[in-house]
Write a protein that binds this DNA or RNA. Structure first.
Lengths: 99, 99
DNA sequence: CAAATATATCGACTTTTCCCGATATGTAGA
DNA sequence: TCTACATATCGGGAAAAGTCGATATATTTG
C-alpha cells in the first residue's frame, strides 16, 4: 500500500467519521450490546449510522481495511470491523518523522 | 480548514513529493544556493523539479498552504514556500489522539 | 511607462472518486 | 435443498480532483 493511498483513505468525510465511531463502539453502537464489542462492529450497524447504501459502506470499509486502519473478522453471516490502533500510531510517527 | 481537507491535501503523489523535497531544500534545490534557503523555495524551482505546468504547481502549493503545511513569503517577483513543521506535529498528535 | 519575468487565476477537458441500484456470494436455518 | 439474510462485487451516472493552456496580476528594470 502506497503512502498516498493511506491518505486517500482518510480523504473522505464519511470514512473519517466511521473511524471515529469505531473508536467508541459502546457509545456509538448501543444496538450491538448483546453481541459484545470485542470482535468489532458489523457492516449493518455502520450502514444504519452512516445513512448510506449497503454497497457504499461495504466499499468504504474495504478501503479502510486496505489502508490498514481496520481489521475484518467474519463470524457467520456477519463481518465485524474494528480499528487497528497500531496503524494510527504508525501513521502518526511517519508524519512526525519521515513526511 | 476541515480535518478532511487536511488529508485531501496529502492525498496526491505530487504534493506529497513536494513536501518531501522541501524537507531538505539544500539537497533537492541546489539551483537556489545563491539566494539561500531560509525564506524557502520559489515556485519556479519546484515546477522544474515536479515536471508539471506552472499553473498546476502554483495551485498545488496553494492547496498545501491552505492546509497549513507550507508558508508563503513574497519577495519581489518571487514567492517562496517553506514547510511549517508545526503543522506536521499537530497532525501527528491529532492522529495518535483524536482520530 | 514599457518590456520582461514570476506567480496566480480562469476555463476547459480528462481522470478519479463518490455513491447508487442490481446482482452475486456466503452462511444459517427450516 | 430452499429460503432468508448479511455482505461483497459490478456497472454506471454525477461530482470532484488533476492538469493543461491562456490570460491576468504583480514586480523589477530599462
Amino acid at each position: 500500500m502506497e503512502q498516498v493511498d493511506i491518505f486517500k483513505a482518510l480523504a473522505n468525510q464519511t470514512r473519517l467519521q466511521m473511524l471515529e465511531w469505531l473508536k467508541e463502539p459502546e457509545i456509538n453502537f448501543p444496538g450491538q450490546k448483546e453481541y459484545g464489542y470485542d470482535q468489532g462492529i458489523c457492516v449493518g450497524q455502520l450502514q444504519a449510522k452512516a445513512n448510506l447504501t449497503q454497497s457504499t459502506v461495504s466499499e468504504y470499509l474495504s478501503i479502510l481495511q486496505r489502508a490498514g486502519f481496520v481489521k475484518a473478522t467474519r463470524k457467520g453471516q456477519w463481518t465485524y470491523y474494528k480499528r487497528d490502533e497500531a496503524a494510527f500510531e504508525r501513521l502518526s510517527k511517519l508524519i512526525s518523522t519521515t513526511l
